[in-house]
Computed example of a mutant assay.
Amino acid sequence: MNTKTMIRWSGALIVALLSISGCSQKKSSGIGAQSAPAGTEFVVDNPDLAAKLQLSNVMQKRENNFLVVQAQLASLYDFEQKLQYQFRWFDEAGFQVEKDKSAWRALKLHGKQTVTLQSTAPTKKAQHFTIYVREILDK
Rank of each mutant, 00 (worst) to 15 (best):
M1A: 07
N2K: 05
T3L: 14
K4R: 12
R8I: 09
W9M: 14
S10F: 13
G11M: 13
G11K: 15
G11A: 11
G11P: 01
I14N: 11
S19I: 06
S19N: 11
S21W: 10
C23F: 14
Q25W: 05
Q25R: 14
K27Q: 11
S29D: 15
A36F: 04
A36E: 01
A36I: 05
P37W: 03
G39E: 06
V44I: 13
L49K: 01
A50W: 04
A51G: 12
Q54M: 12
L55S: 07
S56C: 04
V58D: 11
M59H: 11
M59Y: 12
K61A: 08
R62N: 08
N65D: 15
F66A: 01
F66H: 14
V68W: 02
V69T: 11
A71Y: 00
S75E: 08
F79G: 02
E80P: 07
E80R: 14
Q84Y: 00
Y85F: 13
W89C: 07
W89D: 12
D91Y: 08
E92H: 11
A93K: 15
G94C: 02
F95G: 09
Q96F: 05
V97C: 09
E98L: 06
K99H: 11
K99P: 14
A103M: 08
A106F: 10
K108Y: 00
H110A: 12
K112Y: 14
Q113R: 15
S119I: 00
S119D: 15
S119M: 05
T123F: 01
K125H: 05
Q127C: 12
Q127F: 03
H128V: 00
E135L: 07
K139Q: 13
